[in-house]
Amino acid sequence: MLQRAEPPNHETPPPRAPELVCPAGSLRALKLAVDAGADAVYLGLRNATNARNFAGLNFDDAQLREGIAYARARGRQVLMALNTYAEASQVDTWEQAVDTAAALGADALIVADIAVMAYARDKHPGLPLHLSVQASATSHEAIAFHQRHFGIRRAVLPRVLTLSQVASVIAHGTVDIEVFGFGSLCVMVEGRCALSSFATGQSPNNAGVCSPPSAVRWVDSADAVEARLNGLLIDRYAPGEPRGYPTLCKGRFEVDGARDYALEEPTSLNTLAVLPDLVRMGVRAIKIEGRQRSPSYVEQVTRVWRQAIDAAVADGRRYRVDPAWTSTLAHLSEGQHHTLGAYDRPWR
């Protein structure tokens, strides 16, 4: 176990430390995340049952078994993402994934489809269910719906709520709340976005992918490089201009004759600055996005967040974002700008 800072001697009990939940796209990433201080890792199987269904990523049964053993031996948890919507003619694939998670001893399932929830509830009543961000539950009523009918114990909030809205959701409910702390940022409500399937036929809900690599074409011309998604021009870069992956909502488009990032600039989320607020309002877990990122990325981000959470819990009033953390994260994000996203809504 990592050495944790001693809690200060306050009259009121110290705040409960939120769990640090880190992404594991591979066994190596899992081990590095655990070693760097993750309280839990989340992972998926090698098929469309999870929302990072990319080639070369995710776990087969043997790797899952080894990963669970590794985490468990160190007192950490493994959460299995089963967070896509079961395809109507292949529901058994999702059911088998639930059975696999139960048989191999995953600590919880992260689920979005009520069909999957109902199956898990009925077949494996002891297996805790976490409501995935893909279930689009943005209010305490929406969370209570899944608690009442399917017994979910934790909910991951979509990245659209402000801090005060997050606090309100926590105050009005009895389900543990997990929020995103760091990583790529969806500007659209997760689980309700058909932009990718509109352009390519494949979406997070129906295939576990957004703006899939198979649909991306880079086209060189004399004075520009074009990024196309199923033929649609998502962005055009001048020579020497930094290029980003052509995620549909982060492209440059024309509206009323003006070309701009019409939906979302290619920024990523970083909530280190509001971490003491998240702790104080009782956020139960903080999720790091990025199962598609490299093991070394996961390791470094986990290490920074371990230190930050320990510092925020030890003394929230004296907590400051360590410049070394910022510089590590900025380096990892390849120069992308960081934002607090909806949490403070600069655009409100």
Binding site: V160, M188, V189, A194, L195, F198, V255, L263, R345, W347
Partner: peptide, 15 residues
């Protein structure tokens, strides 16, 4: 016209 996505952010205001 198909509703494809929802956001907390207003894209008309942003424009």
């Amino acid at each position: 016209r198909m509703p494809l996505a929802m956001s907390a952010r207003c894209f008309t205001a942003r424009h």
